[in-house]
């Protein structure tokens, strides 16, 4: 696999890439670590357009910093009310206009499938920074890279994904990404009403991924290598009492960490609310800040491979 197979490719779903592509990106991310602070010039004179039709400060800043560290420039907006979109211009027309300026386009939109449409319209490669409830490929690239760094590889890991698995795109996208690896066991832990979507579990079945679904993580803690935590959002529950009932059992506690397998790490795509209390931050299990930091090298790797 050479770098040239990446040039100009869109990155809409983690499923668009093979395992070998992901492994090359991990290697490239390792290389990028040394440019994280002082930067490089490999994307000099290249322009990244960031189109955030839905707010996401962290993902946007991570992309913009990645491009600046690679020596490129950034244009775009993070508030669609200041763009022509507020006057009713279609997404397709906005993309066509920016396509003539940019070497790569990053888009986040609340309308599902927007990134696919953008990729069809644009000549420049398009990176999906999150749309709908299933895809967030650069978050997953970051998550997989973090697991690879921590354990040396992803094959054979036992990973619980905890929280609202129905609506959280980072959770669905991670399950898709893990399906590329061998002998991974997934523990999908959520209230019954917030189970992983059938689109995702069918894919796990088709890919022969071993998984179980449960609403209680505690009995599995002694087996897990990774506890991947997502938020339970109050507005997803029709009955507020239900939310209060579940909230407690989807918060990470020191007692849970005591009962967990030695070396288990806790990950979270951030921002967190109260599902990971501050006292967890100083435990040897916490990896969510490293995970967030790895997003920079992962995105630098992706941009350099796609644009260079």
């Amino acid at each position: 696999m050479s770098n040239s197979t990446f040039k100009g490719r869109d990155f809409i779903s983690i499923l668009d890439f093979r395992r070998s592509d992901l492994e090359l990106m991990f290697e490239k991310a390792d290389e990028m670590k040394r440019f994280e602070t002082n930067g490089t010039e490999i994307l000099k004179n290249r322009i990244l357009a960031t189109l955030f039709f839905e707010p996401s400060t962290r993902t946007r800043l991570s992309f913009e910093t990645s491009m600046l560290r690679l020596g490129g420039g950034v244009i775009g907006f993070s508030d669609p009310s200041v763009s022509r979109m507020s006057t009713g211009e279609s997404l397709a027309d906005t993309i066509r206009m920016l396509d003539s300026y940019a070497n790569v386009i990053v888009i986040r939109h609340k309308i599902e499938g927007s990134a696919r449409l953008a990729a069809e319209v644009a000549k420049a490669p398009v990176i999906n920074a999150g749309d709908g409830s299933q895809h967030h490929p650069t978050q997953t690239l970051t998550d997989l890279y973090t697991m690879k760094k921590e354990f040396g590889g992803i094959d054979g890991l036992k990973i619980a994904i905890l929280g609202d698995l129905r609506q959280t795109r980072s959770a669905s996208s991670l399950a898709y990404g893990l399906s590329k690896f061998k002998n991974v066991k997934l523990y999908l832990i959520s209230p019954d009403a917030l189970r992983m979507r059938p689109e995702v579990t069918d894919h796990l079945n088709d890919s022969s991924v071993e998984y179980l679904e449960s609403s209680d993580v505690n009995k599995y803690l002694p087996e897990l290598d990774v506890l991947y935590v997502t938020r339970l959002q109050k507005e997803r529950f029709t009955d507020p009492a239900e939310y209060e009932k579940f909230r407690g059992s989807y918060m990470v506690t020191l007692k849970m960490l005591e009962e967990s397998k030695k070396g288990m790490i806790v990950m979270h795509h951030l921002p967190r609310i109260d599902e990971i209390p501050l006292e967890i931050d100083s435990t040897p299990n916490a990896r969510y800040f490293e995970q967030a930091a790895n997003g920079l090298a992962a995105r630098m790797a992706l941009l350099s491979l796609i644009v260079e």
């Binding site: 009713g88 609340k110 309308i111 599902e112 499938g113 449409l117």
Partner: peptide, 21 residues
């Protein structure tokens, strides 16, 4: 049937297609 899907947004030039699952 997903009202939040780009294919049902009136201004967007999509060509809907569906995979038989």
């Amino acid at each position: 049937p997903n009202r939040n899907c780009v294919t049902v947004q009136p201004k967007e030039p999509t060509k809907p297609k569906f995979r038989l699952v």
